[in-house]
Nucleic acid binder design. Structure first.
Lengths: 150, 150
DNA sequence: TAAGATTAAATCGTTTGCGATGTAAATGTA
DNA sequence: TACATTTACATCGCAAACGATTTAATCTTA
């Protein structure tokens, strides 16, 4: 009985490069986010709020695929930094609504230059633009597919 | 002065789907790894040890892009589970060599079926095989490119 | 309307991930 | 050989992630 041990080789896995690329990408953002005094997951939450305005904890979670056990402490930290306001909904006391403070809104202007800088850093002689676009599409499809299965 | 706020839209970022896909993938492994009583990063370390035998902490770190601040506690947990042995090198007392116990080696047989199951779960009607192969290639190139820049 | 089910956040405990720093061994060099 | 530098891990503190559970509000339905 042949056992496919090669399947266990690191380079043959999809999971590892995904895990590594994700962590490396986060590190690429770090110096820019440090200037804004926020972390990468905090940045993602702000992206949501900049794009969609006031949101409940769960609707932020739906967009970022995170749950209250992760978001609640993170949001409390953003509140401490005076970037957001957390308040119970009057219509439904279970819901906590998150909105941006003036400082939180203002931070958007400082953040707007980040994607461009990141794209430049991403650019490699190894990866063409069309390849990158194709990659992004597949990545999103992969994410959607995985989301459905969990 | 036009400000490209659309660049900040969640769906236009590369970072977010990468981050989400990585986390979702880890979750796909969870039920299988639970059977082996290990976590996903612990699985990655075992993949290295199954493939390369005895390794120093730093050479494991080089392969997984992790440093001793992450690996040392993780390796101690694997040692507690009796899956690995940590011992100082005689040739260089600074180096800690990690080797598999009998149990650690035996676990490989239980793990060998995991990649296949994962691949099946990954398969989506949305993503073709050729697309998946292309994707993996680009992902690895991306990882390599990022690694060089950090 | 009262009891049970569902939902939204929060809390708890554990493991990662990582920047910064510490410690001890090995190496380089004057 | 002395002393500085480098290297390999370890330690510390903090912020995610996340499974499991709790709490309180809302909804269902009998």
């Amino acid at each position: 009985m042949e056992e496919n041990f090669e399947n266990l080789y690191l380079e043959n896995q999809l999971c590892f490069p995904l895990y590594a690329a994700s962590r490396l990408t986060t590190k690429m953002y770090a110096p820019y986010l440090e200037d804004l005094d926020i972390t990468y997951p905090q940045y993602l939450v702000l992206l949501v709020l900049w794009q969609y305005k006031e949101q409940s904890v769960s609707s932020i979670g739906q967009k970022l695929l995170l749950e209250s056990n992760t978001l609640t402490p993170l949001l409390k930290r953003l509140e401490q930094k005076k970037l957001i306001i957390r308040k119970r909904s009057i219509k439904d006391e279970r819901t906590v609504l998150i909105s941006l403070t003036k400082e939180g809104k203002a931070l958007k202007k400082k953040a707007v230059c980040i994607p461009e800088k990141i794209i430049k850093s991403f650019k490699t002689d190894k990866i063409s633009l069309s390849e990158a676009i194709e990659f992004q599409k597949t990545l999103v499809k992969l994410m959607e597919g995985l989301k459905e299965k969990l």
